[in-house]
Design a protein around this nucleic acid. Structure first.
Lengths: 190, 190
DNA sequence: GAAAACAGAGTGAATGATCATTCCGTTCTT
DNA sequence: AAGAACGGAATGATCATTCACTCTGTTTTC
């Protein structure tokens, strides 16, 4: 039985993800990450250059997984409204299904890490949402506003609400998801 | 020339506010707060029990100032739509005029402090936005959704956008404010 | 095929850095 | 001069990171 070193790497990443989701970056010492992953502290540094690199790796992986999943059924042949509604709905369901990932990403984007990452994303130009927005604008289906503003109208409400959901103030069910998505679309459409 | 002890208290609070806004909680050591406030480290502990108490005091003060200011012109006699638009517009302008306060509050509400504070607010029931929402719902002017959801639709977009503004990705001018507020209203109204 | 030598993953005590907080000598106020 | 206010070095706690060592599986030697 060959020891798969990916196994330990994964265990470290999962332990860190869980801890950061539950306690935040600053209450997730490497010692605890190592303990929860069932490895020695030194082992973390065999797989990651330092703690930042570990966090970056987790972000990269979760972000990719998220984007892939929520756009999985998206097709340029569908009507724009349908596409928006499907993608938003997927996003919300995903976030609710994987609360630890949501919390991690939320923390990440609210930290100094996140700002730089966003800057990178924007300049590299591979933003599937941006493309969808641009197309919808060219068809005069949604308001002709800066993409940042459209992003805000589309995602702001749910990001806001997610905190309430995670904190336990509300319970988001399928019916509510439908209504939220509709309301966001109302804000977006011409 | 009498040394007013309130003066030092204020200087400490302002220094902490600025540092936290610019660098976050965890890059704002008491030593630096003291230095920027022009006082000794020990002095901070004459005015605040500990660092948490200092942060709570800053929150309390900035939050009160914010609420007072954005509701200053609000009157129950005005039409609901006008009231929403005025209050939102005030909020956005305030946040843009005082970016350090905005950043501080954003950090605060994204930290463990903030969650507890929100819980407190909700149970105490003194939420002027909630009242406005309830009234508008009773008049069938806005969608009949849970207040959390309405809050999210109303404030989510701007909170989201504010980060972009502060990070320098966009420049929010008066025309943009008007459009954002309209879009939020579109999401809210029946 | 057994024993010896090696390789390198894994470990966690030790290190050094950074903080919040305290404590006591100094400075101001009355 | 007494007492309050102040300053900042000292303290003790918490971390990320390192590094000398162990352990296990593999290769070489005879």
């Amino acid at each position: 039985m060959k020891k798969n070193s990916t196994d330990k790497r994964t265990r470290i990443m999962n332990a860190a993800l869980d801890l950061i989701a539950e306690n935040g970056f600053h209450a997730s010492p490497t010692s605890l990450i190592a303990k929860n992953a069932g490895v020695g502290m030194g082992t973390i540094y065999r797989y990651f250059e330092n703690k930042d690199a570990l966090i970056e790796a987790i972000h990269q992986e979760t972000h990719e997984k998220l984007i892939t999943e929520i756009f999985s059924e998206d097709s340029e042949k569908q009507p724009v409204r349908e596409r928006f509604i499907r993608v938003f709905t997927n996003l919300i369901k995903y976030m609710i299904r994987y609360p630890h990932i949501s919390k991690f990403l939320e923390q990440y984007y609210n930290s100094p890490y996140g700002i730089d990452k966003k800057r990178e994303k924007l300049s590299s130009g591979d933003d599937p949402f941006g493309k969808l927005m641009n197309y919808a604008k060219s068809q005069h289906i949604i308001k002709n506003l800066d993409n940042h503003v459209l992003h805000a109208i589309a995602f702001g409400p749910f990001i806001f609400l997610l905190k309430d959901h995670i904190a336990g103030f509300i319970q988001i069910d399928d019916e509510m998801i439908g209504k939220i998505v509709e309301a966001c679309w109302d804000g977006l459409k011409r």
